[in-house]
Design a binder for these strands. Structure first.
Length: 254
DNA sequence: ATGTCACCTGGTAGGTGA
């Protein structure tokens, strides 16, 4: 099994790249973030024509998530049950016996902002829901754009970024809180090249200078840990014309 | 470097979010 996550920063713009990438990488599951499409405009037909099932949960202008899979997804859930939210950030489904949660964590804007408060509340709710999901789904993956660089080695300039959004102690503690549920950062189960990032700012020639952060993650449950064969970031789509600012992350399960 | 991209409203630009 091969599963992946990708923040596409507008599926309307990136659809051809997503279809190309699906054809090349042939994952079993791909979760998307920042589709920025209302459900009425979701390109289900384009995915179906290429042989993919698609489920979406979107809104106008911002956010929006989707679950693309070869096999149909069952027991699909939109957003965090019991957590009232205007923003479309979560889609979960069971595919081939795996519980897959695709999530677009709030950005948080700045540590002293209202959006940061929301980011913390949202993650409190997510964590408690994932805890409950784990009690009924031992084989679970939580994947998406977490908007946190878990450690200094996930940041190109940790001194400059210290205390900044994506790197605050509060956000890193939230990430540890997810690991404390018994989840494992699939990327760190393996030796990885130094300076591995999943996001590069569009500004400042950041990609060319490899100035990025690792903020897109795949967490796997304890029951899946021994089945993880590889985890990697695919930088190639970031070299496309009109790329997303994020690269896909892929995990291989036995 | 001051360096971008996508979307909206409302307009041949400015504001917002990332």
């Amino acid at each position: 099994m091969r599963l992946a996550t990708w923040n596409v920063n507008s599926l309307a713009v990136r659809l051809p790249q997503v279809l190309d990438w699906l054809a090349t990488q042939a994952p079993d599951v791909l979760v998307l973030q920042e589709t920025k499409l209302v459900d009425e405009k979701f390109p289900h037909a384009a995915f179906a024509d290429a042989g993919w099932q698609s489920r979406c949960f979107g809104q106008k202008t911002y956010n929006g998530v989707a679950l693309i899979s070869r096999q149909p997804a069952e027991a699909v859930v939109n957003n965090i049950p019991g957590f009232a939210d205007e923003q479309a950030r979560v889609i979960a489904g069971t595919v081939a016996g795996l519980r897959v949660i695709g999530a677009y964590f709030p950005n948080g804007q700045a540590p002293d902002s209202e959006k940061f408060v929301y980011k913390m509340r949202w993650q409190d709710a997510l964590r408690e829901w994932v805890r409950a999901e784990l009690s009924t789904h031992a084989q679970l993956l939580l994947m998406g754009d977490f908007n946190v660089a878990p450690e200094d080695r996930d940041v190109y300039d940790p001194v400059a970024w210290a205390g900044q959004i994506h790197c605050t102690p509060e956000e890193r503690a939230q990430f540890q809180g997810l690991l404390a549920l018994g989840l494992h950062d699939a990327f760190r189960l393996f030796e990885q090249p130094p300076k591995s990032w999943s996001w590069w700012d569009y500004r400042n020639l950041a990609f060319r200078k490899n100035q990025g952060l690792r903020i897109d993650h795949i967490l796997v449950s304890e029951a899946l840990r021994s089945q993880v064969r590889a985890c990697s970031i695919d930088k190639l789509p970031r070299k496309n014309e009109r790329p997303s600012d994020h690269a896909p992350v892929i995990v291989e399960l036995a």
